[in-house]
């Protein structure tokens, strides 16, 4: 092969360069067994992690009562609510005097009856017609 003319001393010709490339292509640097092992080990670890992620149990949906409790403000709010409830029942069963008097005033238990004739003249006219 002609590897370049004597006139072309300042650079290698294309044929020689292509030959160098072909040599480099044919002799690819080979990875070590250690690198191959490390890469395979990485691959299997990634697979194991992915499998562990999908195998994790699903989070159970909350029961209704737990959601309702959370909506009311949790156990501390429930304690307050229960106390108020018991207090209400006790006052209903055994009302203190103050409560009774207040209730009497408020609901006006001593009722007065009033008769209001909305059409006072109507009765007279009716009587006349009937005559």
């Amino acid at each position: 092969m002609n590897w370049g003319t004597p006139m072309d001393k300042h650079s290698l010709d294309d044929a020689a360069l292509d030959d160098l490339f072909a040599t480099a292509r044919a002799q690819a640097p080979q990875p070590s067994f250690d690198l191959m092992d490390r890469v395979l080990s990485d691959a299997l670890s990634v697979q194991e992690l992915a499998a562990a992620d999908t195998a994790e149990p699903q989070v159970k949906s909350e029961p209704f009562w737990r959601a309702a409790l959370a909506g009311l403000g949790g156990w501390p709010a429930m304690a307050g609510l229960a106390t108020a409830c018991v207090g209400g029942v006790w006052i209903g069963i055994n009302p203190p005097d103050l409560v009774s008097e207040s209730a009497t005033v408020f609901f006006a238990l001593e009722t007065d009856s009033y008769l209001v004739d909305a059409m006072p003249g109507f009765s007279a006219e009716f009587d006349l017609v009937e005559g």
Binding site: N2, W3, T5, D14
Partner: peptide, 21 residues
């Protein structure tokens, strides 16, 4: 890149066995 490589390797033509006419 090829031109630069050709220039860089010109001085090693004999050493690399590319000097035959």
């Amino acid at each position: 890149g090829k031109r630069a490589l050709a220039k860089a390797l010109a001085g090693r033509r004999d050493e690399l066995g590319y000097s035959d006419g």
